[in-house]
Simulated assay, not measured.
Amino acid sequence: MRDHDLPARERRTRGKRRFDDDEQLFLKRGRAAEPALADPDAEPDPDTGERWSSWDDAVHGPQPHPEWLVTELAAKDTELGMLKTGKEADVHLVRRAVPGTDRSCLLAAKRYRDPQHRLFHRDAGYLEGRRVRRSRENRAMAGRTAFGRQMIAGQWAAAEFAALARLWEVGARHGTITVPYPVQLRGTELMLEFLGDQEEGLAAPRLAQLRPEAGELRELWGQLVDALVVLARA
């Protein structure tokens, strides 16, 4: 049977599917979905730099959680400044503390930039073999639309968080922890254990910045071997 012999309603369903054919029918025929309201607690207070802890609605790191980690819902996060900038993400220093108590910890918050301000130079190799269930999202990522780049950032952050969690678990099991504790994942933001001076908020130097003595070189070599062993076991 030729296409023009079919009823008009059936003809419309043949051929190439539309980009939004994965959407539920009631979303297409009904009124447009209202945008999600902004969470007033998600943005820091402009005067104090504080916001409520995002621990409650985030994906958490491996259990048992370290004793130093503040998990109380009454805690507040305070922005202390930027630690490092990169092509795809920036790392910020955050203090999470419970007001009126001595419970506090420093965290490194790695935040992937919005689609207009980042370039995923390696995303082709990263996305190879990785697909999501909905074809609309796969097409968006393949076409590098704004929505697709946001999806890529979310997958990138989730994969990084999962890898750190796995390395932490393997290291803890064998008594050799070689990565910062992955505290939580929320959207495209990873919060990690801060490695550095807890009082001054100074990050530990990178290996390339060190000029170690002979004794320190042996210790650093041992740490490198331990890290490779954990990586092999993972």
Rank of each mutant, 00 (worst) to 15 (best):
E79G: 01
E79V: 06
E79P: 03
K87M: 11
E88Y: 07
A89T: 02
A89P: 00
D90F: 01
D90S: 10
V91C: 07
L93W: 01
V94A: 02
R95A: 00
A97P: 14
V98R: 01
P99V: 04
G100F: 05
T101W: 02
D102C: 06
D102E: 11
L107G: 01
A108Y: 02
A109S: 12
Y112S: 01
Y112T: 03
D114M: 13
P115I: 07
Q116N: 12
Q116I: 11
H117F: 15
F120P: 10
R122G: 09
A124R: 15
E128H: 09
R130T: 08
R130Q: 09
R130M: 10
R130L: 13
V132D: 01
R133V: 11
R133G: 07
R134F: 14
R134G: 05
R136H: 09
R136Y: 08
R136D: 10
E137V: 15
E137I: 14
R139D: 13
M141C: 09
A142P: 05
G143K: 13
T145W: 07
T145H: 08
A146N: 13
A146R: 12
F147H: 15
F147S: 13
G148R: 05
G148C: 06
M151G: 03
Q155K: 15
W156D: 11
F161C: 02
A162Q: 08
A162C: 03
L164E: 02
A165W: 00
W168P: 00
W168S: 01
V170F: 03
G171K: 04
R173Y: 02
R173V: 06
H174Q: 12
H174C: 12
H174T: 15
G175C: 09
T176N: 12
V179F: 02
V179T: 04
P180L: 06
P182K: 00
G187P: 05
G187F: 10
E200K: 03
L202E: 15
L202T: 12
A204G: 02
A204Q: 04
P205T: 07
P205A: 08
L207R: 13
L207Y: 13
L207F: 11
L210C: 10
R211N: 14
R211E: 14
P212S: 02
P212C: 04
P212Y: 06
E213N: 13
E213L: 14
E213I: 13
A214Q: 15
E216K: 09
L217W: 15
L217P: 05
